[in-house]
Design a protein around this nucleic acid. Structure first.
Length: 572
RNA sequence: GGGCCUGUAGCUCAAUUGGUUAGAGCAGAGCGCUCAUAACGCUUUGGUUGGGGGUUCGAGUCCCUCCGGGCCUACCA
């Protein structure tokens, strides 16, 4: 039995995520986790909320709440939405947890002991009115290059020129608008990841099976310009993990916290510790997932993320682990995704453009979204959500191909044989051909799932559903019944078993519908079909079943138009 | 500016890494079926693989160039 550690990029705390965020990390991670579990692997699937940083403080201030309270509330909101989408985390943690505090401080101490931390005194812009140092992009002013008056301190969005905050004419705080700014000296810790450049390069070069998207981004950062740059891992903020060297105070760093991108990946580890605490497990129970010297040597670790997260997962976090010189588990495979766009443009959190997780669930059950999003996952390039495409896919794939198959089989049986699996008849060459085709297709499906080729897996699963309709059409039990009821019984017995098979195979994509199908078939046998012929005999003659409610309803044109209009504009 | 990705049927995507006649789904057309959510099945129309040039016995795939789309460029996360 393989042991698979799976993490999804942890969503930021400052609001509800949109479908683009969902399909880029959490949803495919869940698909893979469910598949691995179904195949009998031992799975640890972890996620969390990413709670530190300036945007969290500002969002809390805007909501008029203490930042700790705000994060606690938003964590619960996101956890509830995750449950709504049936994301099967073993634990959904918080980067602000005590476990992450301790681990982050521990890593910093180890890195310092091993010579990978450098103290750097630098100058940063301080806003007296806001009582905080301002990140570059939180400073606005007039661009010295093109005169655009809303240029940010890191880059002018109008002329795309890269800027330094001190370049701006008439700089002001983007938070308060205050012009009472001054440059102050402040000391920060830098992670000397440049010292690990060769180790990182060799490690990445060894990952020949990774998606191009992942390795090309990593190599770009490794080799661009002067090569991998050292990175500041502390900030002058109130909300965050206090800078400490292990459990010791760090002289000169009082009042500072670690940079969110330093502590966020460490939360992957801390989430396992949180899982242990929440489930009455021991320290050793979680460390056997993360320490190769404490039982994790046989663990395969797979990460899921959008492409914007790749540099941190291929360079900074591995540098943190390598620099600790501890036996922490490095990632084995990084599955990265492009962006999902919305109807001709981008999803926009600030403009409320597109569909957000809470709105999606208010419109339709999660399976509808899971199916569309996963079968259109932006693997090879950015992809686009349109309501027309969503409507067509849901109606055709889910309602017509799968849902109607369940409906026609169960209703035909009920009317001719009653609500139990009929006896009699025997399997012939047509049935054997179906079994052969399914055997081939299920093998292909498994290959795609193992390779985390999400769209290909979805296409193969759909073809497996179609095979049932093809079989039924050619076997035509409604005709056979007139002359040979026993043979019609054999056809329907096989078809009822197909429903159970489909429930098992489809569960990673559409868990609720799969559960409904199993319930209708009155079985709890959801064993993965290693032998298709055998799997199609599980429901034996005399076994009772029920006709389920419509599995998937169709989306009407009027609804689609209504939603189209509702989500084009500003989120109310 | 630099780098990376991308462009294949009306739409969404494949094509075993250079190898027969470029394939699926949806949409369109025709036929069949009547168990079923007006569902299902079969057949079928549709391509100068963005344009041009080159390498090769052979190019969707490799090289050059032009055009279009996207992403990243290190203090948002």
């Amino acid at each position: 039995m393989a042991r698979i550690l799976i993490t999804s990029a942890i969503p930021y705390i400052n609001g509800i995520k949109h479908l683009g965020n969902l399909v880029g990390s959490q949803l495919p991670a869940d698909l893979y986790a469910r598949y691995c579990r179904a195949r009998g692997d031992e799975v640890m699937f972890l996620c969390a909320t990413d709670e530190h940083g300036t945007p969290a403080e500002l969002a809390a201030a805007k909501a008029g709440k203490p930042v700790a309270d705000y994060c606690a509330e938003m964590h619960e909101v996101q956890a509830e939405l995750a449950r709504g989408f049936r994301l099967s985390f073993d634990h959904f943690g918080r980067s602000s947890s005590p476990q992450n505090h301790a681990l982050t401080q521990y890593f910093a101490g180890r890195l310092a002991d091993n010579g990978y931390i450098q103290e750097v005194t630098e100058k940063q812009v301080f806003s007296k009115a806001d009582d905080r140092f301002l990140p570059d992009r939180y400073i606005e002013g007039t661009c010295p290059n093109c005169g655009y008056d809303k240029a940010r301190g890191d880059q002018c969005e109008n002329c795309t020129k890269q800027l330094d905050p001190t370049d701006l004419i008439d700089p002001r705080s983007a938070i308060s608008g205050s012009t009472d700014l001054e440059v102050r000296e402040t000391k920060h810790l830098y992670l000397r990841q440049s010292l690990l450049k060769d180790d990182l390069a060799a490690w990445i070069d060894s990952k020949t099976d990774w998606p191009v998207l992942t390795t090309s981004i990593a190599k770009k950062w490794l080799n661009d310009g002067d090569g991998l740059q050292d990175r500041g891992i502390t900030r002058d903020l109130h909300w965050g993990i206090p800078v400490k060297k292990g459990t010791q105070d760090w002289p000169g760093m009082q009042g500072k916290v670690f940079y969110v991108w330093f502590d966020a990946p460490i939360e992957y580890i801390a989430a396992a510790a949180e899982w242990a605490e929440a489930n009455g497990k021991t320290e050793a129970d979680w460390r056997r997932w993360w320490r190769t010297d404490e039982g994790a040597a046989d663990v395969r670790y797979v990460q899921f993320m959008g492409k914007d997260n790749v540099p941190f997962h291929t360079l900074s976090f591995p540098a943190t682990i390598m620099g600790s010189r501890d036996a922490w588990k490095l990632v084995d495979y990084i599955k990265s995704f492009n962006y999902l766009n919305y109807d001709g443009g981008q999803f926009s959190t600030s403009q409320g453009r597109g569909v957000f997780m809470d709105q999606a669930l208010a419109i339709l059950p999660s399976d509808y979204w899971r199916w569309w999003l996963l079968s259109h996952a932006p693997e090879s390039s950015d992809s686009e959500f349109t309501w027309e495409n969503f409507q067509a896919s849901v109606n055709k794939d889910l309602a017509d191909v799968l849902g109607n198959f369940v409906s026609r089989v169960t209703k035909f049986c009920r009317s001719k044989f009653g609500e139990e699996v009929p006896a009699g008849g025997s399997l012939g060459t047509r049935e054997q051909a179906l079994i052969d085709e399914l055997t081939t297709r299920v093998a292909a499906y498994q290959d795609h799932m193992a390779a985390i080729e999400v769209r290909k897996a979805a296409a193969e699963l759909r073809a497996i559903w179609v095979a049932g309709n093809e079989y039924l059409q050619s076997a035509a039990p409604w005709s056979v019944y007139k002359t040979d009821p026993e043979q019609a019984a054999a056809i329907i017995r096989l078809s009822l078993n197909l429903i159970r098979l489909y429930a098992v195979l489809s569960a990673p994509f559409i868990p609720d519908a799969s559960a409904t199908m199993l319930t209708a078939m009155a079985t709890t046998d959801d064993a993965w079909p290693d032998d298709i012929a055998q799997a199609l005999t599980v429901l034996e003659p005399g076994h009772g079943f029920s006709v389920p409610e419509i599995l998937f309803r169709k989306i009407a044109d009027e609804e689609r138009e209504d939603w189209q209009a509702r989500f084009a504009g500003v989120r109310s």
